[in-house]
Design a protein around this nucleic acid. Structure first.
Length: 275
DNA sequence: AACCAGGTGGAGC
DNA sequence: GCTCCACATGGT
């Protein structure tokens, strides 16, 4: 890996595939500009990523931010080796070998995953895009993700108008709570259970959405977001009649251990993108 | 054209 | 503490 003033060049591609990283359901703000060429947005920042069979090049004004964003200090080889002998993992890791779990903005993940509930990924992207276009700071070539203060100024009707459906109320309420002082940074100091519970006090956030936020913004690894896709996987792997999400979560964490968060992402991608 | 989606809130027990 | 159901919308 080579870090320059305005670019990062990655030559070991054994755990870096930009298509997989972006399409594995953890991020909603990016666009494909060409073959192996993507523009990515996070908070009020942006970068370009171009990947060929030989290298991936990240180009941006904020190297420090995107170095951390793409989780470039972490040894994914070690994680994959540790998970390899667990049920269903060999196939899933092989399919999603280039996945990395991004370090995303807390507020952006909070709002994005409220929108994600009972919703299709293509439509989630559309709602978030309209949200940024209407409330995000004008950065010239693009719009930033709107701040909590800006979002708190809008009422439920506004969010309904951009297509949020019945989640409109959740967005209005939770934006107000955060703008009025609900501390997202403090969550990082709590243990897993407490952090999940704390997030669940916000309207529109339940156990699954909380797990997604903890995984994608706080990089908590001892979580296991259970959605419809993971339930399908669970049926394939275990096949007992279990239908309770929290019970499934508990069993899956017991199975996959300290790297549950990564395991979940490989399994999700393999199920949803693979077949 | 139905079905379904990275589920949650709320009512009722 | 559980289970059951309504919920807005539009992509496939």
């Amino acid at each position: 890996m080579l870090v320059e003033k305005n670019s990062i060049i990655i030559t070991d591609l054994s755990s870096f595939d930009i298509r997989q990283i972006l399409d594995c359901g953890q991020i909603f703000r990016y666009s494909k500009m060409g073959e192996g060429l993507y523009r990515v947005y996070s908070s009020d920042k942006t970068c370009m990523v171009e990947q060929t069979s030989e290298k991936a090049v990240i180009t941006t004004d904020d190297i420090e931010y995107f170095y951390n964003f793409f989780d470039l200090d972490r040894d994914y080889g070690k994680i994959k080796a540790s998970l390899a002998d667990k049920p269903f993992m060999k196939e899933a890791i092989e399919y999603g070998r280039g996945i990395r779990i991004l370090n995303q903005d807390k507020w952006e993940m909070l709002i994005s995953f409220i929108i994600s509930a009972n919703n299709h990924i293509p439509r989630i992207k559309g709602i978030i895009d309209r949200l940024c276009k209407s409330l995000g700071k004008d950065m010239g070539e693009y719009r930033a993700f709107p701040t909590a203060q800006k979002m708190a100024e809008q009422d439920e009707n506004f969010y309904a108008a951009i297509g949020a459906g019945y989640r409109a109320k959740y967005l209005a309420e939770t934006s107000k709570a955060v703008a009025q002082g609900f501390d997202l940074d403090e969550i990082a100091n709590l243990d897993g259970m407490s952090a999940n519970k704390r997030l669940c006090t916000l309207m529109g956030i339940g156990p699954k959405v909380a797990d997604c936020i903890l995984l994608f913004a706080y990089h908590r690894q001892d979580v296991f977001p259970v959605d419809t896709w993971i339930k399908k996987v669970y049926k394939d792997i275990v096949g007992d009649g279990e239908n309770n999400n929290l019970a499934i979560r508990k069993k899956l964490i017991a199975t996959y251990g300290e790297y549950s968060g990564y395991a979940q992402q490989y399994l999700f991608f393999n199920k949803r993108d693979g077949k």
